[in-house]
Design a binder for these strands. Structure first.
Lengths: 245, 245
DNA sequence: TCTGCCAAATTGGCCAAACCAGTCCTTTAG
DNA sequence: CTAAAGGACTGGTTTGGCCAATTTGGCAGA
């Protein structure tokens, strides 16, 4: 009951990574604490040292652990760990807090209002075509009662892309990756998907016509609605959030 | 002449990671192109398959490559690769463009102006103490004519930390990581360090006294000065930027 | 000539046993 | 009591092998 064929998030959880990760969480290891040795892990998971070392290499680049030669493997602070590690954590069963939602929405307000302004002035015809295609796909999925979490992410990232600021796009990508699990929960409700779709259409129209003020206003309205929907979601069924995947 | 004992950036370039990375770059591989097999790499680098596999595991979590079972190893798009991979690239000898600087400064303007406002209202006494300590260290290093790139990063991240928004802090961290190499180049000049220090002191004062408007204004002024200094730097000695490390 | 099938080669994934070069701690000889 | 010797760890690395799946190529039949 540990995992199934869900190898479409990170391509190689490779089994061992997940095992080590949940081992760390279950045993409540503290930062800078020393973990079992490679050989212990291999024995514990009934696998080979090579497989363990490969997983450890991955976890080290995610900055979850630190390997000190001739000493041991040490757990690092959670804040130091990379986004990929957090995604792995979030993907299955980590507690889910209202403050995180509020934080996410605050950052979105900081970034997306200004991004949409830039997008208005710098967009090309290609950008419009791309966003249009995304919205069509959104509509298609909505009419089939499917979740649109990926299309929502694609829409917002396409706006960042239209700003022609590669650094901003990169930051936005890692940000959206970070909140991907929450988005999955959010769009489990069909009506929230419909509302987002309508908001998106209005935003695209403003960008296409290069109405800077209107675009920013529409984006702010969209984010406000999303924030309120989140509050409502959390107020009534906070425990549902964890179980959905 | 490939590498020396510079194992203080990412903890385990482990030699093989760097070798594979420069191999990819030298041979000008294109995205989605198939790389040599694990066994080929092992032979090429005169090492074992296990070492190669460990490096590949790391590169896979950095999303530089994709390993398809029973098929091969494929190069992914650069835009998909993680920040760590970009840092590795930047660390040694990648071209250096003015647009990147402009992009970075644009993002900083988007984020830090609002962040400093939040910091004013939400800061605790601890935040002030922390920032003060950073500024003291900055001053100490300046009087010893040392570069302050780490202290500069610490100062700005401490402001993000004072906003009490963990998501924002995380985004800012990855952002600063992304531009770490450029910062190293920037602070190679001592006078730019002094200017930043003075700006930082003014910003801290405003945050401490919770003067929201003044803090934002100081931050904007600081970012403007930094942007201009960058322009000047790039205009006169663009080629120096690449060679400095 | 074209088609279909089967076997060999190649791939990544994995395992086992060993050796190295350090660190740390205990034991032992002076 | 001290200091040297020894052993028991550690992560880092190599070698050599097996597995399952895919790809490939050649051979047989139509």
């Amino acid at each position: 009951m540990t995992e199934r064929n869900r190898t479409d998030k990170l391509e190689a959880p490779s089994n061992a990574i997940g095992k080590i990760l949940s081992f760390i969480r279950e045993r409540r290891y503290q930062p800078s604490e020393r973990l079992p040795s490679e050989r212990d892990f291999a024995e514990k998971f009934d696998t080979s040292r090579g497989a363990v070392r490969e997983a450890l290499a991955a976890l080290e680049t995610m900055r979850v652990i630190e390997r000190r030669p001739n000493s041991g493997i040490y757990l690092r602070k959670i804040e130091e760990s990379s986004i990929d590690a957090l995604v792995l954590y979030a993907e299955s069963g980590v507690p889910f807090e209202a403050k995180e939602i509020a934080d996410v929405m605050e950052v979105r307000r900081m970034l997306e209002g200004q991004a949409v302004r830039l997008a208005c002035t710098r967009r090309t015809a290609d950008n419009i075509r791309e966003i249009n295609a995304i919205l069509e796909e959104t509509n298609k999925r909505l009419s089939k009662k499917q979740s649109i979490e990926r299309e929502d992410e694609a829409f917002h990232l396409a706006i960042f892309s239209a700003t022609k600021n590669d650094i901003l796009l990169r930051v936005a990508r890692s940000f959206y990756e970070l909140s991907r699990h929450r988005r999955k929960v959010y769009f489990a409700d069909h009506s929230r998907g419909r509302q987002s779709y309508e908001d998106h259409c209005a935003i695209l129209e403003a960008i296409e016509e290069r109405r800077v003020g209107q675009a920013e206003q529409q984006m702010n309205a969209h984010l406000s609605r999303t924030g309120e929907a989140w509050q409502a979601l959390l107020a009534y069924i906070p425990q549902v959030a964890c179980r959905l995947t």
